[in-house]
Simulated scan of single mutants.
Amino acid sequence: MSVWEVHAIKYADRSARTRTDSFIFDDNHDQPHAMDYFIWLLRRDDEVILIDTGYDAAEAANRDRPIRHDPVRALAPLGITPGDITQLIVTHLHYDHAGGLHLFPNATLHLQAAEMAYATGPCMCHDTLRMPFTADHICEAIKRLYSGRVIFYDGDGQVADGVTVHCIGGHSRGLQAVRVRTQAGWMVLASDASHYYENLWLRKPFPIVVDLQDMLDGFVTLENLASHRDLIVPGHDPLVRQVFPQGVADHISRLDKGPTRKIEISS
């Protein structure tokens, strides 16, 4: 069975955050707690699958959350152009994961049906639940649907040999994690099922949540899917770039060979 390369591409970061932004229950709520923003690329011979898109300069300006690399430019060191992306797994439709759908016009989207229903349904009448979404991004997903280029999943599904998706929910109704066969074993790209190692390892929920039980149950699911816990890659933790080796550029990390040092977290 062949294995996939896995690349984590950092396109933005935020340092003006505290631990209260990352954990519902935390004694050190006022301490700084930085966040990195990633998209991920899977590659096997001539096959490529993009996982999430990040967001572009216009969204960065609208939300006052600058990006360091436009998603297209961020992928360039890997020799990838927008037209090369024909398969795009969307872990969920929040702005920082689906804000660049329009940048990849050839892509078929792989999405949980529950996520589309959530982002277009009555829950969006609530400002708090609507906050992480942007209407233009949802409209782009709907346009892709009407052009016949959305594949929906209801729970678990296979995107390609060695690549499966698994509905976790919690943070968003149809949030899905991605399981990938690598030379280090079965790796799980958690996306926002666990923003940080600390969310998962210490069972500390992230504050943006639609269903807390699903989030907590999802931690168990992530552990069951991975060959071992060190192969669960959180969606926003700066520690990822410290424990995995640098890839072909300083904003890219190579994940598929596994971490190069012990993962240690402090609360």
Score class of each variant (00 low, 15 high):
residue 212 L to I: 14
residue 234 P to Y: 12
residue 168 I to H: 06
residue 113 A to G: 05
residue 220 V to A: 15
residue 34 A to F: 03
residue 249 A to I: 11
residue 23 F to I: 01
residue 259 P to S: 00
residue 264 E to S: 12
residue 231 L to K: 01
residue 17 R to T: 04
residue 68 R to W: 05
residue 8 A to F: 09
residue 112 Q to D: 14
residue 221 T to F: 11
residue 232 I to A: 04
residue 77 P to A: 15
residue 72 V to S: 04
residue 83 G to N: 13
residue 238 P to Q: 06
residue 188 V to P: 01
residue 187 M to E: 03
residue 228 H to I: 08
residue 255 L to V: 12
residue 218 G to S: 04
residue 176 Q to W: 11
residue 88 L to S: 02
residue 46 D to W: 15
residue 253 S to E: 01
residue 179 R to D: 05
residue 133 F to Q: 05
residue 196 Y to M: 14
residue 137 H to V: 09
residue 199 N to V: 01
residue 178 V to I: 15
residue 134 T to P: 07
residue 11 Y to V: 01
residue 135 A to L: 10
residue 119 A to E: 08
residue 158 Q to G: 13
residue 255 L to M: 07
residue 60 A to K: 00
residue 251 H to D: 05
residue 74 A to I: 04
residue 180 V to K: 08
residue 198 E to D: 07
residue 204 K to Q: 14
residue 160 A to L: 04
residue 207 P to W: 10
residue 208 I to D: 06
residue 218 G to A: 04
residue 35 M to F: 13
residue 117 A to M: 05
residue 62 N to I: 12
residue 239 L to T: 06
residue 62 N to A: 15
residue 231 L to Y: 10
residue 14 R to L: 10
residue 113 A to E: 12
residue 114 A to R: 10
residue 64 D to L: 11
residue 192 D to L: 05
residue 40 W to V: 06
residue 147 S to M: 11
residue 8 A to I: 05
residue 50 L to E: 01
residue 45 D to L: 12
residue 109 L to G: 00
residue 217 D to H: 05
residue 237 D to H: 07
residue 64 D to I: 06
residue 217 D to Q: 08
residue 222 L to G: 01
residue 62 N to E: 15
residue 192 D to K: 00
residue 230 D to S: 12
residue 45 D to P: 10
residue 259 P to H: 00
residue 169 G to P: 02
residue 264 E to R: 11
residue 11 Y to W: 10
residue 61 A to Q: 09
residue 133 F to P: 09
residue 163 V to E: 07
residue 136 D to I: 15
residue 40 W to I: 03
residue 203 R to E: 15
residue 200 L to S: 02
residue 110 H to R: 13
residue 26 D to E: 08
residue 191 S to Q: 11
residue 258 G to A: 04
residue 45 D to I: 07
residue 258 G to M: 04
residue 193 A to D: 02
residue 231 L to E: 03
residue 264 E to A: 12
residue 165 V to E: 09
residue 186 W to Y: 13
residue 85 I to N: 04
residue 78 L to T: 15
residue 256 D to R: 02
residue 25 F to Y: 11
residue 218 G to T: 01
residue 222 L to V: 01
residue 201 W to C: 09
residue 182 T to D: 07
residue 72 V to M: 06
residue 23 F to K: 02
residue 118 Y to L: 03
residue 217 D to K: 05
residue 224 N to T: 15
residue 146 Y to E: 11
residue 7 H to T: 12
residue 50 L to I: 02
residue 97 H to R: 10
residue 174 G to Q: 03
residue 165 V to D: 09
residue 193 A to H: 03
residue 100 G to Q: 07
residue 48 V to P: 04
residue 224 N to V: 15
residue 60 A to T: 06
residue 223 E to P: 05
residue 52 D to Y: 06
residue 223 E to F: 08
residue 179 R to Q: 14
residue 105 P to Y: 04
residue 239 L to Q: 03
residue 125 C to W: 13
residue 174 G to V: 02
residue 138 I to F: 05
residue 36 D to G: 03
residue 53 T to C: 04
residue 189 L to M: 12
